[in-house]
């Protein structure tokens, strides 16, 4: 990090990332067309997360950022997953209360 103002990325890197993102988009379409049952959700999200990481890492230059910046970005996404997870903790465990039958 001698001269952090000038991390000039070659155009080819950007183009490769761009192509990878396009391929992922096509891939996610065909993955959704096929029926993998519950797995469909995971595949779709895995591809979306991959694409997001590509954008974060190359376009948003996280690879040349300070640790503090990376930590900030990670904290944001972590908190989002925390929120979704704790919400699902409630909704995933909503079930009818079964009262014990007397005499059994």
């Amino acid at each position: 990090m001698a001269e952090p103002q000038h991390h000039v990325t070659p155009v080819s890197t950007y183009v490769y990332v761009f192509l990878a993102l396009l391929v992922c988009t096509v891939l996610t379409y065909f993955a959704a067309k096929a029926d993998f049952g519950l797995l469909n959700n995971f595949i779709a999200m895995a591809i979306a997360i991959t694409k997001a990481l590509l954008v974060l890492y190359f376009f948003m230059e996280l690879r040349h950022s300070t640790r503090m910046t990376v930590l900030t970005a990670a904290a944001g996404f972590f908190w989002l997953f925390l929120m979704i997870g704790l919400f699902l903790m409630d909704y995933g465990t909503r079930m009818a209360v079964v009262l014990p039958v007397p005499g059994k």
Binding site: M89, D90, Y91, T93, R94, M95, V97
Partner: peptide, 10 residues
């Protein structure tokens, strides 16, 4: 949300 309809586990 204890009395609002939240699941017992949660």
């Amino acid at each position: 949300l204890f009395v609002a309809g939240e699941s017992v586990y949660s």
